[in-house]
Simulated assay, not measured.
Amino acid sequence: MLPKVDLSDIADELTRLGDEIQRAYEDSEQAVDPAPQVSLSGFAQLLDAVRAGEADSHGGSAQLLRAATGAEPDALLDHGLGLLRQLAEVARRLNQESHAQAVEVLVVPFTCWMLRRGAELQHPEEVVSALATLANSLEEPDELAELYGLMDEIADGIGADRIQGMDPTDPTDPWLILLINRGIVATRSHQPALMEAAFDAIGEQLPDHAPYFFREGMGQMETLNYPTQVRELMQRYFDKWCSGQRLH
């Protein structure tokens, strides 16, 4: 199930996870630093501060956030991501892998909430990783279509400098991973309109990767029982990118 882009829901889920991580911390015989409560308290304080950033526009929200916190929305977003990362690392050191992953997933709704209030995502690595975790946990096309919407928001919120600095030869580049994963999620949503938008972006921004993506996509069409309209659309992009001189 997708997390809601809502500060109260984020806070409630973090309280639930934090209680369990704190119990594991108290029961642990190994020394783990910092204590989970450090991250939990810091994030709770941050949520209280950013709740002031409610306005009818991105610019208005950003102005309210600056007035309430004395910090730029980008910096507040980075701070929140850092606190969640710190808590997930503590959970992992306590052998609470499932709780660590659940904490990491919360970076998605928190990021989207901040983006809607004027922040720009300068360091997308962990958010892109969390989106992949969510995609792997979903099966229903409607939920995948909803996830596609969140992926779009995050793609739109990534700083232009980060996108321009993409290294298409690096398979770990977060912008490349996001575009590819968004194409996969669009396909699994069974919605041709989402597929076209995602596929066009891959062709425009990752032309060297496009033939491999659509060749792999056609292989999935043959392996899995995709609807006719999905198969036909994938075939069209396969024909465009994987025929003639493009085949290599």
Rank of each mutant, 00 (worst) to 15 (best):
Y237V: 01
V90W: 13
A201R: 01
L17E: 05
S61H: 12
L83S: 04
T187Q: 09
H248Y: 13
E29A: 09
V105P: 00
A68E: 14
E89C: 07
T223M: 07
E143L: 12
D152Q: 12
D56I: 15
T223K: 12
E72D: 15
L47C: 08
V103Y: 09
V105Y: 06
C112G: 08
P34M: 01
E120N: 09
R116E: 07
A155G: 11
G53T: 13
P36K: 12
P109Q: 02
L40D: 00
V32G: 02
G82R: 00
I180S: 06
P109I: 09
G149I: 06
E13K: 15
A119W: 03
D167Y: 00
A75I: 04
E20L: 12
L147F: 03
Q220H: 10
V105N: 06
S57C: 06
R23A: 14
A62L: 02
D167T: 02
D200Q: 05
R93K: 11
E153I: 03
S57Y: 09
L138W: 02
Q191P: 07
E120A: 08
L14P: 08
L121D: 05
Y148G: 00
V50Y: 13
G217Q: 07
R231P: 05
G157L: 05
R16F: 08
L76C: 02
E146A: 13
R215A: 01
V5H: 00
L64R: 15
E143S: 07
R92K: 12
E97H: 04
Q86S: 14
L64Q: 15
L87H: 04
Y226M: 10
P141W: 14
V128H: 10
A49G: 07
A91M: 04
A91S: 07
T169I: 09
G53A: 01
G149M: 04
K4M: 13
Q191S: 10
G59Q: 15
N136D: 13
K4W: 11
S129F: 13
I163D: 11
L194K: 05
L194G: 01
L150D: 00
M151Y: 02
E216C: 08
V127R: 13
Y25V: 04
D74I: 02
A210E: 00
L147T: 04
M151T: 11
D239N: 04
S129M: 14
A68N: 05
V103S: 01
I180R: 09
A44P: 12
H99E: 02
E89S: 13
M151A: 10
A102T: 00
L64H: 12
D48I: 00
Q45D: 15
Q86D: 05
R51Q: 05
L40C: 01
D33A: 12
L76E: 07
L134D: 01
R93I: 07
R16L: 11
G149T: 11
A71Y: 11
W175G: 03
E54F: 11
E153C: 09
D19M: 15
C242P: 08
I184M: 08
F43C: 00
D33C: 09
L94R: 01
L178Q: 05
A210T: 08
G59S: 15
R215E: 03
S41T: 11
L14R: 03
D27F: 10
L121I: 00
Q86L: 09
D170G: 05
T111F: 08
D78M: 13
G165C: 04
A71C: 11
V105R: 11
G82A: 02
R231M: 09
A62P: 12
Q164D: 14
